Computed example of a mutant assay.
Amino acid sequence: MKKLIKNIRYLYLVLGVAVVIFLTQCGLDPFTIEMPASGDAGKVVTFTLKGSTMSRIDNTQANPTYATKLLIGIMVPKSWNARQNTVVAFTSPKGNETMVLIPDAEIEPLSGQTWPIAAKNKLGIGPNLFDDFEWIIYRSNAVYTFKNNEDIKFDVKVNCKLGPENMVTKLGFYMGSSRENLNPSNTDYNKIAFSNQFEVKNGEGDLIDFINPQLSKIEPVRSIDNDIVTLTFDAGVTNTALSNTDDLYLCAKAFDQTDAVIAETCEQTTRTKLTALGGKRYRIDLWARGFFNVPSGATISRIEYYYTNSSGTVKVGYGNTADPFKFTFKCQ
């Protein structure tokens, strides 16, 4: 008898869960992204998100509808200054409108953080290998009400002015419901997708490659000569002339704004030695002004560098050649 009662309770529990699942089967379908493979720096590019809703609401409820505002998020490089250079609008059977940027200071209810921080923590940077991105979230003005089985399709147009820098990256896009906000456990109302490779061409400076494994990179990407930066060397990306040693040293030149050499350092000492991180990865942290002993009043515009062995006879630089890597300092 006790076993029968236990089984009946379990049956009620299962049925209860099923009802809850049914009642919450109202959300967004995965969306697709239509976009070009590249765009020119400083020009406006349109990214189109093609979405749809799935409304499954229990008609036995007192008010069998679901009302919400639409949320749209974009993840782009910080240098694009997207807050000032983006317009997000959508068309749908429910209505058409231009969306409003959620203020940076507004708190996302579930996380207790500002929307940009909450979105970054929840949505991440996708397949990009290092971070110089921001999430910004837009919200519809109107509240849209859905009835049971009222499924619609809608298109979101993101018109965004590209930043000034040459780069290769993958962009992030988000769709959500203001009624649910950034609920980390509810995937019905939170849809995210990252784009295929997108390239910004005909811009300024050296190519910034966010998505392809690189022998060497400098972080932060956006720094000035008075910042402490980290240089990393990843010998695991491909076989190099330095793959059989852990004694790696930095050789570098500093240039001013006229492209004249300010200083050059190429010594095999503790000051220039990289620290092994394991897995054939190495790093060195440096303050450029101090490293090159730059006099007061002079400014480092860019550096060129390569790595060498303990004798200085082997050089590995850009593209696994003896040509130097290049890095241009930029203001935030």
Rank of each mutant, 00 (worst) to 15 (best):
A235P: 02
G236S: 15
K217S: 06
C331I: 09
F22C: 07
F173V: 14
W80D: 03
L277A: 06
N59H: 01
S301A: 13
V294R: 05
V229L: 08
D234K: 13
D151A: 12
A193Y: 12
Y138N: 08
S111G: 15
T24H: 02
W287D: 14
D131V: 06
E97I: 05
L71S: 05
L101C: 08
G312E: 02
G112T: 09
I74T: 11
F146G: 12
A193E: 15
Y174A: 11
G312K: 03
A82V: 06
S178R: 13
K280I: 01
T46C: 06
M75Q: 12
T48I: 13
K161P: 09
D131Q: 08
V221F: 01
I224Q: 13
T270R: 09
A241V: 07
I137M: 13
N244Y: 06
E304A: 08
V19S: 05
Q257R: 14
T313I: 01
V14L: 06
T258P: 00
F198K: 00
L101M: 12
S216E: 06
V76S: 03
T232C: 04
E97T: 04
D188N: 15
V314E: 01
T270G: 09
L13P: 01
T32Q: 08
N309I: 01
R222Q: 10
E165H: 10
T270H: 03
F22A: 15
A298I: 07
I211H: 03
E264H: 11
K94S: 01
N149I: 08
L207A: 04
S311I: 04
E165W: 07
S92V: 02
K3M: 07
N186M: 12
F133D: 05
T238E: 15
K153M: 10
P103N: 08
Y12S: 00
A263I: 03
T68A: 12
K273P: 02
Y282V: 04
D131I: 06
V17Y: 09
V261W: 07
I57V: 13
T321F: 10
T48A: 11
L215D: 01
A18Y: 02
F90C: 04
R56N: 11
C266M: 09
T91F: 01
E264M: 10
D259R: 15
T169F: 00
T328I: 04
T86F: 02
N63F: 09
F210Q: 02
V316A: 07
T313Y: 00
K315Y: 10
C26R: 03
G42I: 08
T48V: 14
V14Q: 00
I125W: 00
K120N: 13
N128I: 00
A322E: 13
S185R: 14
K326L: 05
F327L: 06
E267F: 01
I218G: 06
V76I: 06
G172H: 13
K253T: 11
E304Y: 00
L15N: 02
R139H: 02
I117V: 12
T299R: 10
T24I: 07
K326A: 09
Y144C: 10
P184N: 14
S185D: 12
K315A: 07
T265Q: 15
Q84V: 02
N85F: 01
I5R: 10
L70E: 03
L171Q: 05
A142N: 15
K326I: 09
Y307A: 05
D323W: 00
I262P: 06
E180P: 01
P36W: 03
T48W: 04
C160Q: 15
V19I: 13
N212H: 12
I218N: 04
N85K: 04
V158Y: 14
I8G: 01
